[in-house]
Amino acid sequence: MQIHYLSEENSILNHFLGQIRNVNVQKDSMRFRRNIERIGEVMSYELSKNLHYRNIEIQTPLGIKKTTEIEDDLVLCSILRAGLPLHLGFLNYFDAAENGFVSAYRHHYNNDEAFEIKVEYQAVPSIENKNLLLIDPMLATGQSMVAVFNKLMEKGTPKEVHIAVVIAVPEGIAYLEQHLPDHCHLWVATLDEKLNEKNYIIPGLGDAGDLAYGNKL
């Protein structure tokens, strides 16, 4: 797996990452959503450098200009519900992309810390021979991402797979490397320390879905 760490160099990305973590800022849910969206925009720009382009000519009011445009067919697919603000950030830049949405959650079958991943709702276009961008803000155990990936692969074979996450931990990255094809790209805005005993990211930021949309039952 090819891994791209985006916060290793100072940029405006680190400013947005700091705000989504800050307990004095993140409680403003509108600001939290917007910051996640802006992180998605920055990540889109960086990811766009790895796409394929074709040469074109543009008619301007005063002449012809040679330039390039994205050649790849893109499908943005986010994991509900926390992935929605990040998805919007990617869509702001890849505005011609098709869009898919999948639900995945931890099912605690014994009402304890043990869980399995349930993948249920799916609304996804064809991914056959297209560039699939899987989007989710948090990469903790990695099990949700792998479960969604496997479910999507039942629908077709993409040309390329790019996975975009805001915060990841080494455990989740190792799980993806073990269970996903080597040719996948993983884009990580920032790498955190570890998972705790409940498989929550430390230091993390809390529950991204709750911070964006309110507490759930």
Score class of each variant (00 low, 15 high):
109 Y>A: 05
71 E>R: 05
99 N>T: 15
49 K>Y: 12
60 T>F: 08
111 N>A: 13
127 I>Q: 02
102 V>M: 02
81 R>E: 00
128 E>C: 00
34 R>A: 02
134 L>T: 03
115 F>P: 01
38 R>W: 14
90 F>N: 06
119 V>P: 00
42 V>G: 00
70 I>Y: 07
70 I>L: 12
31 R>A: 07
115 F>R: 05
90 F>A: 06
36 I>G: 07
73 D>I: 08
123 A>S: 10
18 G>Y: 12
17 L>V: 06
36 I>W: 13
78 S>C: 15
70 I>E: 10
103 S>T: 15
31 R>Q: 03
115 F>I: 05
96 A>H: 13
100 G>W: 03
105 Y>S: 06
79 I>G: 07
39 I>G: 06
136 D>C: 10
118 K>S: 10
56 I>C: 03
35 N>M: 01
135 I>E: 07
21 R>E: 08
27 K>F: 11
124 V>A: 04
69 E>R: 01
40 G>P: 11
104 A>I: 07
75 V>N: 09
123 A>V: 05
18 G>C: 02
72 D>P: 06
141 T>I: 05
130 K>G: 03
28 D>W: 04
94 F>C: 01
101 F>G: 01
141 T>F: 06
28 D>C: 00
132 L>M: 06
117 I>G: 02
14 N>F: 02
36 I>D: 09
79 I>Q: 03
94 F>Y: 14
121 Y>E: 05
77 C>M: 05
94 F>L: 02
139 L>Q: 06
108 H>V: 06
135 I>S: 09
98 E>A: 10
83 G>E: 08
141 T>Q: 04
128 E>R: 07
77 C>K: 01
128 E>V: 05
114 A>E: 14
38 R>S: 05
24 N>V: 01
26 Q>S: 12
107 H>K: 09
42 V>L: 13
73 D>Q: 15
44 S>D: 07
83 G>P: 04
82 A>I: 11
111 N>R: 10
79 I>L: 07
37 E>D: 01
81 R>P: 00
108 H>P: 04
